[in-house]
């Protein structure tokens, strides 16, 4: 998608708060995702990392703060309009369309794309990146293995051609060998210069491919910086061993 604004920041969160009925799960989160960078949010499970991505894509209601996509405020938009603003969210648990084929799932990713040639081009890109999906294209999503489903989820996110790809724990629930394959794919995406906001539990797994890392604990960002610095910080231990 060509960028008419030329903004350097693809996605920005400013003091974002959100929750589900009870107290705030996100207690004022601010972060920026510069174009062409991979920004990672790491932290233990159950501390609101998924809520962060769900709030950006509009699945969870925002309580306060602002969300900017390429400089334009989108926090008041309904979820389907945020997709149109270039937010491609690959949610936890994949949320595939179970009775559709792999191809139909991928084509749903390009739902907003009106240009059929453009859709075809992206499909070719996705199949080049994830050749397994080309083999499985006529298979129903419900019949796929866990790793294949994850690939469909990522491929479907790429089909949107959005500004920012948000990946929620792409390694969750997969066998170590499959996790490796998935992270190879993410490394390829990095080489392609994609803008990615990645959420992951295991900091060591993503340190190598991140440009910026944020340590997330109990609804707040407690530390931000370069990956190499994070691995030596004592905040990391405190966060994971119960602070």
């Amino acid at each position: 998608m060509p960028d008419p604004t030329g903004a350097a920041v693809a996605l920005a969160l400013k003091d974002v708060r959100a929750g589900y009925g009870g107290p705030d799960v996100l207690k004022g989160v601010s972060l920026e995702v510069p174009r062409g960078c991979i920004v990672t949010v790491v932290g233990p499970n159950g501390h609101g990392k998924s809520t962060l991505l769900r709030t950006v894509s509009g699945l969870t209601r925002l309580r306060g703060g602002r969300i900017l996509a390429l400089g334009a405020e989108i926090q008041d938009h309904a979820a389907h309009r945020r997709a149109a603003a270039g937010i491609a969210h690959v949610p936890q648990g994949d949320l595939l369309f179970p009775d559709m084929t792999v191809l139909e799932n991928l084509r749903m990713g390009a739902y907003l794309e009106r240009d059929a040639a453009q859709e075809k081009r992206r499909l070719d890109e996705v199949f080049a990146l994830l050749p397994r999906l080309a083999e499985r294209r006529t298979q129903v999503a419900a019949s796929l293995s866990g790793g294949e489903r994850r690939m469909v989820g990522i491929g479907r996110g790429l089909m949107a051609g959005g500004q920012v790809l948000m990946l929620d724990e792409p390694s969750l629930g997969l066998a170590p060998l499959v996790i490796e394959q998935i992270y190879e794919v993410i490394a390829r995406l990095r080489e392609q210069g994609r803008t990615i906001l990645l959420v992951e539990e295991n900091p060591a797994r993503v340190a190598e491919l991140s440009d910026v890392m944020h340590l997330f604990d109990d609804g707040e960002i407690v530390w931000s910086g370069a990956p190499d610095d994070l691995m030596n910080r004592e905040e990391l231990l405190a966060t994971y061993l119960g602070g």
Binding site: S57, L59, A79, H80, A83, A84, P91, L95, D99, Y111
Partner: peptide, 24 residues
């Protein structure tokens, strides 16, 4: 049709359809 695909997608997973930009 595209409309039909959006209908099926919404039926199978409403949240995912929203993420694809489907006006549910």
């Amino acid at each position: 049709t595209k409309m039909g695909r959006a209908i099926r997608a919404t039926a199978q997973n409403r949240d995912a359809a929203l993420l694809m930009g489907v006006p549910v």
